[in-house]
Each structure stands twice: as structure tokens, then as C-alpha cells.
């Protein structure tokens, strides 16, 4: 069997085990409905157009929230890196913001921004800002000082150093940060959609949970999982492309 098929084996085995256990009557169908019922629930939701509606609502939120965060975090990291003074000024404020779980801030956010999109976006931003910011800043810190010196002897301007040395040198770290940050924002989405949403995968799950529709809850969870994994794969593919110069790229299992 091909090596690249290997990561798909375990998921298939798990679903098969789930199906077998259900068929054998080992699982309480109210707590853990069999896979085919989950599938039917998904098809039903899709037929009624609910699935696309919820997916669309969630995707838009995540993309808007995450794009704004990613841009802000990268720019702030670059500015802070180039200005040690600003770094010291912001240090404690950023640390405090970083260690407070975004969900803890939800009551405040609702009071500040109301129950509309703004407060949900704020949760996503709080959740994904720091993974991106910290990774980008670390990556910039680790930019080889020897390359910066070399650029200095070439008489490069600050802008040229950013474009030709800092940014490409930090790119692998930036991509790691974006990957992590996207994961966080995707997860925070459920928290965000607990806030009186009327659409979104998080809303769909909460609603289904209140009606004890475990099959729909599972549909929601599986869709979140599959979409999250798909975007992660997309990031990895982009990372490969953008950092092709790294003869050896390490994936998260340390394989090269």
C-alpha cells in the first residue's frame, strides 16, 4: 500500500468499529447513534438547506475573524520586533491578554459589542491572535543575525531587509503560526456561536443538544472536524510551496 494512504487507515478502522459496535447493539443509540443514522441526519439537514446555511455562516465568521487577526498579528509582530522599546511597553499587557481564556471574556464582549457578529468575531480574534503573534515574533527573533549583517554590508534599506531577509526567513514560523491560529479560531467558533447566534455550526450543535438530537450533534462535530482538517491540509500544502527552498521540511510528527 502507498505510504500516503496510511494516515487514512485509522479513521476508516475507527468508523468501522463504531458501525460494528452499533450493529452488535453495544452502543446506546440515544447516546451514540450508529453511523448510518448520523449520515441520514446529515443528508436530511442538507436536503433542507440547513447544512449549507450553517456551514456558510461559520466559514464567513472564521475567515473574516481569522484574516483580520492574522494580518494584525503579523504586522504587530514585525513592528514589535523592529522596535525593542515597543516590545517592552506592550509586554505585560499582551501577556495578560494572552493568558485570559477568550471564553471568559464572552459576557463582557456581549455587553460591549452586543449579540451580533461583532462579539463573535471578537472571540475568534482573541482566540487566534496570540498563537499567530507569538509564532511570528519567535520566527523573526530567530532570523539569522548573520543574514541581517550580510544585508547591512550590501547596503540594504530597512524595507529591503524586511522583504528579502526577515519575511522569507520567518516564513516557516509564520505558516506554523497561521496553522495553529486557524485551528484555534475554528475551535473558538463554537464558543462564539453560543452567543445567541441564529446560524452556524456551533449554533446547530447547541440547538441539537438541547433537543437531545445526538445524531445532529455528531453531524456538526464531524463537519467541523473534516473542514478543519481540510484547511490544515491546505495550509500544509501552501507551506510546502512557499518554503520549497527548505530542502527538508518537518511535519508535526517530526518526519522529514
Amino acid at each position: 500500500m502507498r505510504r500516503h494512504m496510511l494516515p487514512f487507515v485509522l479513521p476508516v478502522v475507527l468508523v468501522a468499529a463504531w458501525a460494528l459496535a452499533s450493529a452488535a447493539g453495544k452502543l446506546n443509540p440515544y447516546l451514540m447513534p450508529p453511523p448510518w443514522e448520523v449520515w441520514d441526519a446529515g443528508v436530511d439537514l442538507a436536503r433542507r438547506g440547513l447544512l449549507t446555511k450553517h456551514i456558510q455562516a461559520s466559514l464567513i465568521r472564521v475567515f473574516v475573524g481569522f484574516s483580520v487577526t492574522a494580518v494584525c498579528a503579523c504586522v504587530l509582530a514585525l513592528i514589535v520586533h523592529l522596535s525593542p522599546l515597543l516590545h517592552d511597553t506592550l509586554r505585560h499587557v499582551l501577556t495578560v491578554l494572552r493568558v485570559v481564556p477568550p471564553l471568559a471574556a464572552i459576557p463582557l464582549l456581549i455587553l460591549w459589542f452586543g449579540i451580533d457578529e461583532a462579539s463573535k468575531l471578537a472571540v475568534i480574534m482573541l482566540a487566534s491572535f496570540f498563537p499567530v503573534y507569538m509564532n511570528v515574533l519567535t520566527a523573526l527573533r530567530q532570523t539569522d543575525r548573520r543574514f541581517v549583517e550580510m544585508g547591512q554590508t550590501l547596503g540594504l534599506t530597512t524595507g529591503e531587509k524586511i522583504a528579502h531577509i526577515f519575511v522569507p526567513g520567518a516564513l516557516p514560523g509564520v505558516i506554523t503560526g497561521l496553522r495553529l491560529g486557524f485551528g484555534y479560531s475554528w475551535r473558538a467558533l463554537i464558543g462564539a456561536e453560543l452567543i445567541a447566534a441564529s446560524a452556524g455550526l456551533g449554533y446547530m450543535i447547541t440547538e441539537a443538544g438541547e433537543m437531545a438530537r445526538t445524531d445532529r450533534v455528531l453531524v456538526g462535530i464531524l463537519i467541523i472536524a473534516v473542514l478543519g482538517a481540510a484547511f490544515d491540509a491546505l495550509f500544509t500544502a501552501l507551506a510546502r510551496r512557499w518554503t520549497a527552498w527548505q530542502a527538508l521540511t518537518v511535519d508535526d510528527h517530526g518526519r522529514v
Partner: peptide, 10 residues
């Protein structure tokens, strides 16, 4: 430089 210091991404 004593080591080449070529930018690896170029």
C-alpha cells in the same frame, strides 16, 4: 564572510 551566508530562500 568566513561562512558563505547565502540566503537559503534565494
Amino acid at each position: 564572510f568566513q561562512e558563505p551566508r547565502l540566503l537559503p530562500w534565494k
